[in-house]
Simulated scan of single mutants.
Amino acid sequence: MGEKVSNILVIDDEEDICKLIKNALSNQKYIIETRNNAIDISVDELKKFDLILMDVMMPKIDGFTLCKRIREEIDCPIIFITAKILEEDIIEGFSIGGDDYIKKPFSILELRARVAAHLRRENREHHNTLSTNGLRFDLQAKELFFNDIKISLTKGEYNICELLAKHKGQVFSLEQIFVKTYGYDKNSDNSAIREHIKNIRAKINLYIDNPIETVWGVGYKWI
């Protein structure tokens, strides 16, 4: 069986950058498509790509705006190409769902290495991960990550996060969360869930705005 050929999209308003990246990666068993702007790019079109390289500072629609717009439906790695190297810019890129960034000017070797690393991980983990809200769930290891930083959760805390994230937008009552997390026979009460949620929020808030929303009088949901 032949080696999988990966489809990569490059979005940069500088045509020379697009040509440079295409030339650098075309010899690496990748199929490269380039766009000079982010206007009128449909989600359906983007779904065919295994990785997206996009500039941050583009006219009309910048890279951060496009990432926010597509991230809920596009789960392939997104690497930002940017001259913006302030820490707050980097953190923003990760928080909206970016997987990595490459600073301009960049070396061809660095570009190739980062692209290859993300595609290897994607091919290895695609069926065992869930990415949402800038977080990555390792469904096999039962671990939660921000970028490559593991968020230290107890087993119960992780199970609550996975349950809510897998059913994004659905409201669960305290009893439903308890039953799905611990089962019917566990000797405890629903109030323990409130404490777990409090702890989860404190831990996740270190990296992103917490995605667990309280629906007063009903329960909680992942937004």
Rank of each mutant, 00 (worst) to 15 (best):
M1L: 04
S6D: 08
N7Q: 11
L9W: 02
I11L: 09
D12A: 04
D12I: 06
D13N: 12
E14Q: 14
I17A: 08
C18A: 12
K19R: 15
L20F: 15
I21P: 05
K22R: 15
N23H: 15
A24V: 11
L25R: 05
Q28W: 00
I31A: 10
I31Y: 07
I31C: 08
I32S: 03
I32T: 01
E33S: 11
T34H: 07
R35M: 13
N36Y: 09
D40M: 13
I41N: 08
S42H: 11
V43R: 11
D44G: 02
K47S: 04
K48G: 01
M54V: 10
V56R: 01
M58W: 09
M58D: 06
M58Q: 08
K60Y: 14
G63P: 06
G63L: 08
F64T: 08
F64N: 05
F64Y: 11
T65C: 13
C67Y: 03
R71K: 06
R71D: 02
I74S: 00
D75R: 07
C76Q: 00
I78G: 00
I79E: 00
F80Q: 03
F80M: 06
I85L: 11
I90T: 09
I91L: 15
S95A: 15
S95M: 10
G97E: 04
G98E: 04
D99R: 04
D99I: 02
K104P: 09
K104E: 10
E110S: 06
L111N: 02
A113Q: 11
R114F: 08
R114W: 05
R114T: 10
A116E: 08
A117F: 05
H118W: 09
R120F: 10
R121V: 09
R124L: 13
R124Y: 06
H127Q: 12
T129E: 13
T129C: 10
L130D: 04
L135P: 00
R136N: 06
L139I: 10
A141I: 03
K150C: 15
I151E: 02
I151F: 03
S152T: 08
L153M: 12
T154W: 06
G156T: 12
E157T: 12
Y158F: 15
N159V: 07
N159Q: 15
I160S: 07
I160H: 07
E162D: 12
A165M: 09
K168S: 12
G169R: 01
Q170Y: 06
F172G: 00
L174H: 03
Q176R: 03
T181E: 03
D185M: 13
S188N: 14
S191P: 05
S191V: 12
A192D: 13
A192F: 13
I200L: 04
A202S: 15
I204T: 03
L206Q: 14
I208K: 10
N210R: 09
P211K: 09
E213S: 11
V215A: 09
V218K: 15
